[in-house]
Design a protein around this nucleic acid. Sequence first.
DNA 1: CTTGACCCTGTAGGCGGCTACAGACTTTAT
DNA 2: ATAAAGTCTGTAGCCGCCTACAGGGTCAAG
Lengths: 168, 168
Amino acid sequence: MMRETRRGAKVVGEEEGRRMLKIGEVSKRSGVGVEALRFYEKSGLLDSPARTYSGYRVYGEEVLERLAFIKQAQALGFSLDEVRRIVEDARKGQSPCDEVREIVRRRLSELDERLRELHRHREELQQTLAEWDEVGRAPGHICGLIEGSDVEHAARRPEGLKRRGRKG
Amino acid sequence: MMRETRRGAKVVGEEEGRRMLKIGEVSKRSGVGVEALRFYEKSGLLDSPARTYSGYRVYGEEVLERLAFIKQAQALGFSLDEVRRIVEDARKGQSPCDEVREIVRRRLSELDERLRELHRHREELQQTLAEWDEVGRAPGHICGLIEGSDVEHAARRPEGLKRRGRKG
DNA sequence: CTTGACCCTGTAGGCGGCTACAGACTTTAT
DNA sequence: ATAAAGTCTGTAGCCGCCTACAGGGTCAAG
């Protein structure tokens, strides 16, 4: 039961055995927004689904597993780009597990580094607050508190507070 | 010694007593890029400087203090937007120190929250790695390692790994 | 038959803090 | 005199992960 849509994609007849889902249902069942689903497709995280004759995406239920996988990977700290690579490897038949393990190991040491930074930063902040509580209100050009605090200049703002350094 | 530039800003004669800096010198001396300086000006972090007749920005040396202030504030975790508000308050004559103190207190508790999250996440990652080392290579649709790992679904990806939630 | 909910493509925006042009002008050094 | 380096304005782009339209077409219920 394969015809062609107007755009040339596979068409799936409604009468096929498996349960077919339109994008809104997938969204509801997976908790991933409709726009995000289309975005994932464009980004290569989801295969292009079949279409109805009128062009609607129709998904099989296995897409829900895929989406669960993506969420799970995100929860483990993978970027969508990494997920994409993993999915592609898997499609090529290679087990991506070694790469996955490697990524997680790297992620773990990055995380440790960031934790150290953040702890240092925390100490600085607390120290600073304590000093401020002693002096009360400090005079200065703009804010004596800031001008007078002894954060080392080189410190800058800890990376982990802004965003996470990719491709480091 | 005030004339008008073609664009109508204040003009400072070269013969004035104080040392006048062009933007490139300010950049070199402060370590802040030229484009960033113009960006700061647009964002209200720096006052519009005087101009030469031909339109070049000319700064007094006090801009270096201001820039040091900005860097210092950034090192303490302030966003440029917060710095802008602080600077404005100071210009209006209010001591911004109370607000500053408040921001730092808030920042500190956010930071603690994030540290908790990240520690939790770290435990998960390590746990996961350990399990993976036991099973070796796991079979699965895409990567059994990820599919099988028992990160709670609700966990999602810790915010602190992506970026820091402003205006929380 | 109409209403309204759904779906389509394509493009723009948003967060934070810049950076990188393009295309023109000015100043400085040789 | 000329070339190189500096500066100007204005706009676009980057990173990751979407979200939010606009301006259509499609489908199910009443």
